[in-house]
Design a protein around this nucleic acid. Structure first.
Lengths: 190, 190
DNA sequence: GACCCAATCTTGACAGCGACAAGATTCCCT
DNA sequence: AGGGAATCTTGTCGCTGTCAAGATTGGGTC
């Protein structure tokens, strides 16, 4: 499994995934082509089909890995609600390729058992952390989670789409901090 | 310009845009094919190229129309900050096709002058309404706008992606109201 | 160590797509 | 009535995903 020589690649699956992440990072999921990935890995044009079945199969694998990575990130985030949110935004920007795939269910098989499980893991991570850090009533807990999720997800999405005005610097985590602070707290009246 | 008979379609541009919105609504922007649109409109496969140049040209037109539609929606929204947010979410769900295109700049020519102008219009609408409804200091105004935008945009995106748990009903506006309430206000302690 | 099966990868082919070029048809204005 | 411009068609090219069939190799068993 040392190199790419020989009939068998040896580590093709991993190589294809790595190349896919790179391509998506640079040009978005739409630009991803199985034939291009095969070319980059130095294998024939139909080799990827064996590992992923089809294009949706590859995206399905990426979605699973992405949700697992997000769950780990959230579990490892700081104990503060702000740090948790910054962790979410940082994940989206650092692992942009995974993030974009994860929240475009039309790209992959969203009802795949592994996807459901991975998504449930990251959902549990987010939910447990938020509910532990807010004191909304029993009725308000779900709305608290949704609010926290919405504000960080919206920030990440808008940041990645380049929708925010220029001049915010290049540290999304820092910019996100000032925004997330508005959640659950009245604005600092001047 | 009565029907589709004759060499000239008469209203092809509008028909193609309408068909595009329909397709995107059902299957996402990725599924859109110029040849399919031509088929639906009953014209030859190369007819769309004359009106939009290429695929990105069509998405560019949709982005312009979408940002203008959003600007109108925000201008017409209620005077409350909650109503403004509900208006944003309602726009995203009702005009899902436009919304998805608008915030995927890799689909269209984001630096197109008309796009810039339309985006500026909707940006101004959002900014002016939010700053009028919050009392954050001069330094905090930008963060206030970004926070409001983030929470409604995140809610809309997650709702459209089917990321929220089931059982929230089918009225995104109502569900959004409980979430947006968390902005700038402490949670209702039980 | 020889053998066989399954996993892996290749070759070949097909239909659909975006894009471009060149020609046909029609509208509109003078 | 005539002519230019706008609109639409036909034909073609390379690219893509997907399927089928064959070639090669690794790993386990006797």
């Amino acid at each position: 499994m040392s190199g790419t020589r020989g009939y068998h690649h040896g580590d093709l699956r991993r190589a294809l995934i790595a190349a896919a992440v790179e391509v998506i990072e640079e040009a978005g999921p739409t630009a991803l082509s199985l034939r291009d990935l095969a070319r980059r890995a130095g294998v024939s044009h139909a080799a990827p089909a064996h590992h992923f079945g089809d294009r949706a199969g590859l995206f399905t694998v990426l979605a699973v890995q992405g949700f697992d990575l997000l769950a780990e990130t959230l579990d490892a985030a700081g104990t503060d609600l702000l740090d948790l949110g910054v962790g979410y935004v940082t994940f989206a920007v650092r692992h942009r390729a995974y993030f974009e795939v994860m929240f475009h269910p039309d790209l992959y098989r969203a009802d795949d058992p592994e996807v459901r499980a991975a998504r449930a893991r990251s959902g549990r991570a987010l939910r447990s952390r938020v509910t532990a850090l807010t004191d909304g009533g029993p009725d308000g807990q779900q709305a608290d989670v949704m609010a926290a999720w919405s504000i960080v997800h919206g920030f990440a999405t808008l940041w990645l789409a380049g929708a925010f005005p220029a001049g915010l610097g290049d540290d999304p985590g820092e910019a996100a901090r000032a925004v997330i602070r508005r959640l659950f707290t009245p604005p600092p009246s001047a």
